[in-house]
Amino acid sequence: MRLPIWLSQHLAALRALLVLTIILGLAYPLAFVAIGKIPGLSDKSGGSLVAHGSTLIGQSFTDADGNPVRKYFQSRPSAAGDGYDPTATSASNLGPEDVVDTADRKSLLTQVCERSLAIGKLEGVDGSRPYCTPDGVGAVLAVFFRDGLTGPITRVVSVNQTGTPFTAAYKGVTVEPAKAGEDYVAEGGVITPIRGNAPAHPVVPADAVTASGSGLDPDISPQYAQLQVPRVARERGMSEKGVQDLVKKYTDGRALGFMGEPGVNVLELNMALDKG
């Protein structure tokens, strides 16, 4: 007996649903669970959870007031939520041209300058950077010309400082401090970053002052780790060599020997230090 066309179509759809449910709903997930159990992959597939967090997600090592705990290595900054929030993973989306502070937020340049200065003080090194003022904001001027973009300079404003400007004059014109709420770009000022005399290669490395793309990076560069070695050794009463040996132990090389850069897992390193 031949079934009606409409009934045949419904039975074919039901068979397809059952087959795809078995393949995609059961076999496919179970296959990847099995792959995740392969030695070398099981730690990552399980999230690498440990008593103090996950070795795959960065975290802060600060006190209740947000100050760095000096006996621990510090992670790189995070722009994910309030910091290292896996439910809000993101970058700041601020680029190199974000150099002017506003009433709502600090520019990327000022954030970098501020972090570098703070790390310099924490580690006892020079925290200066190009295009940063000595007090840790972006060294940026709004330069006004008589004819818009040409002609003699008529006015200069240090746009990120409401106090004493980082430089008294620019090309013979006295530099004014900024006034809160003023938009000097809208007024016709030409934004001019000033490099200053900071070293071309700052002591504080880039990953110490910038967040990763995800905001969850658990690693820091070997350079940033080495910068922190003297402080951690001093706070824990250890030799610098002993701390350096641990840094080397928890440094991962490039993936496949050539992809990416070496990194030091901060959580694993700090846990090893606590174990003595």
Score class of each variant (00 low, 15 high):
Pro262Ala: 11
Thr110Gly: 05
Ala79Arg: 00
Val140Arg: 00
Phe145Arg: 14
Asn160Phe: 03
Gly53Val: 13
Glu176Cys: 07
Val229Ile: 09
Leu109Val: 05
Ala178Met: 10
Gln244Val: 10
Gly263Thr: 01
Gly127Thr: 01
Pro262Glu: 13
Ala142Ser: 02
Ala178Asp: 07
His201Ser: 15
His52Ile: 15
Val19Asn: 09
Thr174His: 08
Lys106Gly: 04
Gly148Ser: 03
Ser221Asn: 06
Arg231Cys: 00
Asn270Thr: 02
Tyr28Arg: 04
Gln226Thr: 11
Val156Ile: 06
Ser239Phe: 05
Gly189Phe: 03
Gln228Ile: 03
Ala80Phe: 02
Pro177Ile: 07
Glu114Pro: 03
Pro165Asp: 05
Pro96Leu: 11
Ala88Met: 12
Lys121Phe: 08
Pro218Tyr: 10
Gly138Val: 00
Asp85Leu: 06
Val185Thr: 15
Val140His: 00
Glu176Phe: 08
Gly95Thr: 14
Leu17Arg: 08
Pro4Asp: 15
Leu11Glu: 11
Lys37Ala: 14
Ile35Gly: 05
Ala16Cys: 13
Ala64Pro: 05
Phe144Ile: 05
Gly213Asn: 10
Ser48Arg: 12
Ser92Glu: 09
Gly40Gln: 09
Gly172Leu: 09
Thr150Pro: 03
Thr251Gln: 13
Leu49Phe: 13
Leu24Phe: 14
Asn67Glu: 09
Val243Phe: 01
Gln226Phe: 02
Leu269Phe: 02
Pro77Phe: 02
Gln9Glu: 15
Asp126Arg: 01
Ser158Asn: 09
Gly36Gln: 05
Gln161Glu: 14
Ala211Trp: 02
Ala255Arg: 11
Gly276Asn: 11
Val157Asp: 00
Asp274Glu: 15
Leu41Ser: 10
Tyr250Arg: 09
Tyr184Arg: 04
Gly276Val: 07
Leu3Asp: 07
Ala208Leu: 06
Thr251Gly: 13
Ser8Glu: 14
Thr192Glu: 04
Gly172Glu: 09
Met271Ser: 12
Ala118Arg: 10
Pro29Arg: 05
Thr192Gln: 07
Leu26Asp: 03
Pro152Tyr: 05
Val209Leu: 07
Lys106Val: 04
Asp63Asn: 11
Ser78Pro: 01
Ala211Ser: 14
Leu256Ile: 13
Thr102Gln: 09
Met271Val: 10
Asp252Gln: 14
Ala13Thr: 12
Ala27Trp: 07
Asn67Lys: 13
Gly148Leu: 05
